[in-house]
């Protein structure tokens, strides 16, 4: 597989690989590598793990950063190398910027896991752009908001944004006006 075709896939191609493929074992091992800040989803499900390939100097694992300043990237590199080293496989991690990571790449199963974990999964980026120019204050009633973010606890759409920026670069802080619980919203990116 060339790097170009691998990078055009929305998520890693483990489902498409026959289990006899030499890279199948690598993808399978990497299934255990989770996002350091969201331990319920794997790097593949997050769309961070882009490709596994034979490079000039051996096996290469290609990952792409989420946010430019995401402090978890170094941890992810170490986790990938360690997961493979544990099975006796030496690999280099290549960080590739293009195409830029998008929250649209988060797989459907990962979205369900995020919700179960208490994080509202991201709306599509197309929706988000439509509301990007709307001045949206926390004090506003939810009916004025252009995008409704359902509460991951009680599924109510009666929620409001507390802050654009939450506990990590990729999240915003919301509050449910029905069950009164605050929650993280994974921002469209």
């Amino acid at each position: 597989m060339t790097a170009d075709t691998a990078l055009s896939l929305p998520v890693g191609p483990i489902e498409a690989l026959p289990s006899t493929d030499p890279q199948y074992a690598v993808w399978a091992l990497l299934e255990s590598v989770t996002d350091p800040e969201i331990p319920v989803v794997s790097l593949r499900e997050m769309g961070i793990l882009r490709a596994v390939r034979e490079g000039a100097h051996g096996l290469e694992v290609v990952i792409t950063p989420t946010y430019s300043g995401c402090p978890a990237m170094g941890q992810m590199e170490d986790d990938v190398v360690n997961a493979l080293a544990g099975a006796g496989i030496a690999a280099r991690v290549i960080t590739q910027l293009a195409p830029a990571w998008s929250s649209d790449w988060i797989s459907p199963e990962a979205r369900n896991k995020l919700r179960a974990y208490g994080i509202a999964p991201p709306q599509s980026t197309a929706c988000a752009h439509a509301s990007a120019s709307v001045v949206q204050f926390a004090a506003r009633r939810p009916s004025d908001a252009a995008v409704i973010v359902p509460c991951p606890q009680c599924a109510s759409g009666n929620t409001t944004e507390i802050s654009h920026f939450g506990s990590t670069a990729c999240k915003a802080l919301y509050r449910c006006l029905d069950c009164r619980e605050p929650f993280d919203y994974f921002k469209p990116y």
Partner: peptide, 10 residues
């Protein structure tokens, strides 16, 4: 949190 996040991006 917000201004620190912006800082981190920059």
């Amino acid at each position: 949190l917000a201004i620190s996040n912006i800082s981190l991006d920059l």
